[in-house]
Design a protein around this nucleic acid. Structure first.
Lengths: 168, 168
DNA sequence: GAGAGATATCTCGACGTCAAGACAGTACAC
DNA sequence: GTGTACTGTCTTGACGTCGAGATATCTCTC
């Protein structure tokens, strides 16, 4: 189950072993696959959202608001921390979402530097529909793994992610 | 080991379960982690390459050539398939790499539509040094996992990736 | 050997992101 | 209260990518 299952990354690793036999390229077995899978995932997401007239970046912002619960309102700062983008990017995103009437901006009554961004009814409906769709596709994508394997995979990934979540 | 390890994704999943208790959001346990890990990985790579004056995109192209073995030469088409970018992007990348004297372009003697791109000596030295460095950091990043776990993880990821690799 | 379709590469304009920095407002020590 | 450091948001310019389309060449069929 390991020796011959052969995917792109196995080929890539084999090529390295020929070209740089002095190096231990085993880390690629995990990390190249993570990168490649993420790339494919992006495409699948893009396809799922296209049916709801949403771009992946729009979805990211809308879901952050959706997850916050009523009244579906967060500051740009909270949004950029949730989506791992820079502040300039977030300003730009909010501008475009507001123009599309999916979110609304209002001054923060408690901090005059601040702004609060909230979902409109349209935004709420759109993100709920798109999320349903995304989950259906993700489930499909994971259908190659039994429940046990899925949980094991999740747990292993959590371990790798841990150093990034806590420090600083 | 599963209930309380709590990372960002666990929190995200918990938030969804509150807000949309009607949905089965378990797929996120795997796929959100893949995306997030990939994002962190990109940053780590960027940091590793910066010491060798390389951008990630430069590294991607140079390694594809390096892996090809002597004479370290591929067509733009082969390069874009190896790096999963569009042809316009690849043209642009090759232009800039050629300007930096890391690769060389020459007409394909066997196909007059074609071009062949090869590593210069500088390019070869640069990519080898950067790759050493990258592997050192990746090993560090994986140090939280035993060998057995690493292999299990690689194998699970391979399964998920399989559908993307074959059906062209 | 002519034509149709496929392939290889490049060009161009639009777009989203980032990094750096500007600016207004807040918090806290004194 | 005043000064200093910090925080939250927005502005700007440069950059890399994409998608669509242009051009040249090759391949295959008849």
């Amino acid at each position: 189950m390991t020796e011959d299952a052969r995917d792109e990354v196995d080929r890539l690793v084999a090529a390295w072993r020929t070209e740089r036999p002095d190096l231990d390229v085993e880390p690629l077995q995990v990390l190249s696959r993570v990168s490649r899978l993420a790339k494919h995932l992006d495409r699948a997401r893009r396809a799922a959202f296209a049916e709801h007239d949403l771009e992946p970046w729009e979805f990211d912002v809308l879901t952050a608001l959706r997850r916050a619960g009523k009244p579906y309102e967060l500051s740009p700062g909270a949004l950029l921390r949730a989506t791992l983008v820079t502040s300039g990017t977030m300003t730009n995103r909010i501008d475009r979402l507001a123009q599309a009437r999916l979110v609304r901006r209002r001054p923060d009554p408690e901090d005059r530097r601040g702004v609060l961004v909230s979902l409109t009814d349209t935004g709420l409906a759109r993100v709920d529909a798109a999320f349903d769709d995304l989950l259906r596709r993700e489930r499909e994508l994971l259908s190659g793994l039994e429940g046990t394997d899925r949980r094991a995979l999740a747990s292993l990934l959590r371990t790798l992610l841990a150093p990034f979540d806590s420090p600083h």
